[in-house]
Design a protein around this nucleic acid. Structure first.
Lengths: 323, 323
DNA sequence: AAAGGCAATGAATACGTATTCACGGAGGTG
DNA sequence: CACCTCCGTGAATACGTATTCATTGCCTTT
């Protein structure tokens, strides 16, 4: 691959002059400029980004650490991040933690080796001390996406609020019993139950199902079938909603008449199901754009301002499964 | 970030000695080695990968160029590639072409700037001359994934064979009319029709639908409803299959009794549908592993051997929708 | 005891780039 | 005509690392 010195030799100038030409420095003879540019074009010159960074120049590399890019949600997020980053002139070094905290540590070592200018990360767990405490003396700015980590720059969706929105949606559709399917302790569950209670729904009409137990969908569907009320069910993600729809069908519960189902994530297949799945959509593009924006801002003006804590809001996409 | 020279200063040795210690060179005093290692650990030293590469060392960076990572199929592929690469000691520079050939060119410029050791690419179009011809004098090894590009290293799934397998599957289930839904001219379509013909199915019992026309699913479902035969339908991907199931349901066609549906890609939701969607699964992990393996091989022994042309085979996952 | 070999180490250099500094010449001013 | 300024240019250097080469001191061999 051709270098500046090589171009300098071919055009009978010095290497610094080539550097000046290629970086648009005005103080260079127009005739010389043309000669050098022509030569560079001819040989498809591309500057060595690595050598540049040795001069203290930024690498224009951004680390992106995800839990699992094969998950459609993160895949979409990654795409939006990549597009925003590209627009800002940065390239993406991708790393998958596979939900293993150990991999997260490993990732940081590698990213430091490549001298990335900054990192956008989706931690496995928001309460891991590696994220809350251990990264104080970091070598680069870090923005957390998807989760809220107090004290750090973070951009995320307010899941408690989403739970609350979900509850309002199901109430307004006339359901009179309610269930949440997800992992116990989730913010969505808290928000969901709180909103139900605020609306005067008696606790005995509110259920929760733990999706980490085998057969949860069957149990929940059976319970729904055996009751008189119309049950509005909110699930923690769309795949769970699909599984539930499947079991409800098996138990003869008609959707949306006897039960309403509201998913979360709005995966692409939702609109093709019978009935179409209602879901909640996270503002992925905004999340990515804000994360990259904040990161670039930190990179370019590294003063110690207060951390950004930006909650965004999901929106209900009502289709057939909620009537 | 701490450097070798800094460590050298702190431990009263020379920088080359530090280099020797950190690279496991045996000819260094054990006592000195311990002192240096301790210091490096204490300061969380990480070598500057960029400076290393200036010495002609490999960057251990792999470019990965995809059309669209938000597509679940490529997302899964990306994950497998990343895992294989990580295992081989390489990191991933990710780039999305968004199906725009212009972006592909742009990507190569950037990857050259970062001096990647090699590239795995999924081109927008296999017949683009950029891939078939323009990359002869490339600065790094290149392996094509997913598509067959004659004359280049490539690892892909044999779609014609997949079409043929699909036809055999549907025939064996007792369907007596057949349809393919996809883009005209696809290898899958060719293989599908050829196999039907080989099995003596009359051409008037074989249809094709062009999914790029609005309402194709409705038309195909209507046609299926109006005929006497049981129709076995093969779709080019699972999302199309879902759309079709939806329309078949609307037209009162029961699946799998009156029509069978076989998708392609085996996206995760397939198993939650009612009825469960039968599909064909591409060996993603093998594809990724072979692509990375071949690439690493080219990187480490850059002799001009004949290009690899490795077709892999998809397999039918029979669920309820094909009876 | 002299010669030879080896182990441990440091000095110097190279990689590709940006930057600082110095130099020469052209132009202007007094 | 002497002086100063500014423009265009090249020489030298720095960045962090690996490598080559030279040096030192010690141990073995004759």
């Amino acid at each position: 691959m051709i270098t500046m010195s090589e171009i300098a030799r071919l055009t009978n100038v010095s290497q610094p002059t080539v550097s000046r030409v290629l970086n648009g420095n005005p103080s260079v003879n127009p005739e010389v400029r043309e000669r050098v540019l022509a030569c560079a074009r001819e040989h498809h010159y591309q500057p060595n980004a690595l050598a540049k960074s040795l001069q203290g120049q930024p690498t224009h590399l951004l680390g992106v650490l995800l839990t699992d890019i094969s998950n459609g949600f993160f895949a979409e997020l990654a795409k939006e991040i990549e597009m925003s980053a590209k627009q800002a002139g940065y390239s993406i070094l991708l790393w998958n933690s596979n939900y293993e905290p150990e991999r997260e540590r490993e990732c940081f070592d590698v990213l430091r080796r490549y001298r990335v200018d900054g990192v956008i990360a989706v931690p496995c767990r928001a309460d891991d001390e590696f994220w809350t405490r251990g990264t104080d003396a970091l070598d680069f700015p870090l923005v957390i996406a998807t989760l809220r980590v107090p004290g750090r720059d973070c951009v995320y969706v307010d899941h408690a609020m989403a739970g609350s929105q979900a509850a309002r949606c199901l109430i307004s559709r006339g359901y009179d019993a309610f269930a949440f399917a997800g992992t116990p302790g989730e913010d969505k569950q808290r928000g969901f139950l709180a909103e139900l209670s605020r609306n005067g729904i008696a606790p005995e009409r509110c259920f929760t199902a733990d999706v980490s137990r085998d057969g949860w969908a069957d149990v929940l569907a059976g319970r729904t079938a055996s009751r008189e009320e119309r049950t509005g069910i909110f699930t923690s993600n769309d795949l769970q909603a699909l599984e539930l729809l499947n079991r409800l069908h098996a138990h003869g519960v008609t959707v949306p008449q006897r039960a309403g189902v509201l998913g979360f994530d709005d995966i692409p297949v939702s609109r093709y199901l019978t009935p179409n799945l209602s879901s909640m959509r996270q503002p992925l593009r905004e999340m990515a754009a804000h994360a990259v924006g904040q990161l670039v801002c930190r990179i370019e003006t590294p003063d110690r301002a207060v951390p950004l804590d930006l909650p965004l809001y999901a929106s209900v996409i009502a289709r057939e499964s909620t009537g």
